[in-house]
Design a protein around this nucleic acid. Structure first.
Lengths: 225, 225
DNA sequence: GTCTTTCATGAAATTTCTGTCATCAACGGA
DNA sequence: TCCGTTGATGACAGAAATTTCATGAAAGAC
């Protein structure tokens, strides 16, 4: 199996970069390296990485700021911080800032690789995503349950499909035709029927009447919050 | 918004459990605790946890085996291991086994909480995944459609839930009790009823009779390929 | 082999879900 | 304001899903 994870190593020491890079290569990961914050941000902007390994101490820029900038460019980017600072406060700060792991130097290369593997492990449970969070709504596809803030509610097939469709386009009005097409599979808008309206009604009754806004003449829209 | 992640703490020392539990509570996480491997496996079977914090050294069972069993029940379960063993080999072994993090005792509570927060941080802007592929099966949660190789088939609510549950544990037999619990929400095995069998039947009729194997006395199992 | 348990199967019975309809309210243009 | 259009609502009927039941087949235990 090809594990093809793509990793960016950010360290001012070329030796360390290549050292880690080789080890990752041996574990069949693909890696790029960056020498400083600017290069790192550049690389991250240009490419998508499964993981960034970031050395905290670098010339020219504070590692913290690099982390901030990096996460501003790629929110949710997986970042593992390497540092010679063993101080708890620093660790907590960096983790709170958005790093996912923190390894204190000197560290064992084996441990680093093991942690990278653990992080990039293809998750079998992710096969069926338990819940999808979007816009304050929790959709549990595996159980056909939705929670819009007032407790989990069991939805019917159509209700769930309709809500999913609205969640995908959250904050934007979705036309009735479009909904009828994607949920009911209709080609044309069905003239003499209000199935959609009725289904919206049922959804509202279950999840609260503020959730789905009707945009007169345009369709329905999930409120953003 | 309440991030209410649900966490299971497994430690033989009730003091440590409550110590960590309180700290997690303060960070607005909900936590249960288990005293040994058996309790932990029981809890994990019964409930779904966002994270399990597992103390490696426990009486009655090897922590490694507990981890293995736990991951057999919930593949991909997030597990953070606590241990007084600082040995690199052990760390790597546990991480390779499926743990996602490893903290050596004595650890700072602040760091533990920071790591928990980093791990359970809601991922920003994760799109709604349309389709999920697993084991040669394509599950489209948004449309309640499954494709096991012979064209897309529309499933009913229960059928989809049951199939999802089987897919999560693909290749392993899932007990009837466990399925009844996770799909139907039953506590005990329901004696005079074969709802599960009937549902399996319908699934087989729709997706083909080779897909779901019955393991006599053990439950049902999705074939691996 | 015989017995017992476990699972499969098809046909109801029952529950839940969906679509239709009639009617009413809200909105916007003339 | 009046009117036409669009959406909301509740009741109801048909459709689909789910459960129950009765029965038969298969697998293991003895």
């Amino acid at each position: 199996m090809t594990t093809t994870g793509r990793i960016l190593i950010v360290d001012d020491e070329p030796k360390i970069c290549s050292f880690i890079g080789r080890a990752l290569g041996a574990a069949s990961y693909q890696s790029d390296s960056a020498r400083d914050g600017a290069e790192a941000l550049d690389a991250v902007t240009r490419n998508r990485y499964d993981l960034v390994i970031l050395d905290l101490v670098m010339p020219g820029a504070d590692g913290r700021q690099v982390l901030r900038d990096l996460l501003a460019i790629r929110p949710g980017q997986q970042v593992m911080v390497l540092s010679c600072v063993a101080d708890i406060t620093t660790k907590v700060e960096l983790l709170d800032l958005g790093a996912q792991d923190y390894l204190t130097k000197p560290f064992s290369l084996e441990e680093l690789i093991a942690r990278v593997k653990a992080r990039l492990r293809p998750e079998p449970a992710r096969g069926v995503p338990e819940v999808i969070r979007a816009n304050g709504i929790v959709l549990d596809a595996a159980h056909l349950i939705a929670d819009a803030g007032s407790g989990p509610v069991s939805l019917s097939r159509l209700e769930f499909m309709l809500l999913s469709e609205l969640v995908v386009h959250a904050g934007r009005a979705v036309s009735k035709d479009s909904l009828l097409a994607s949920v009911w599979g209709y080609r044309q808008s069905d003239p003499g029927s209000n199935i959609l309206d009725a289904c919206v009604r049922r959804l509202r009754a279950k999840l609260g009447f503020e959730l789905i806004k009707t945009v007169r003449g345009k369709g329905y829209q999930l409120i953003t919050r």
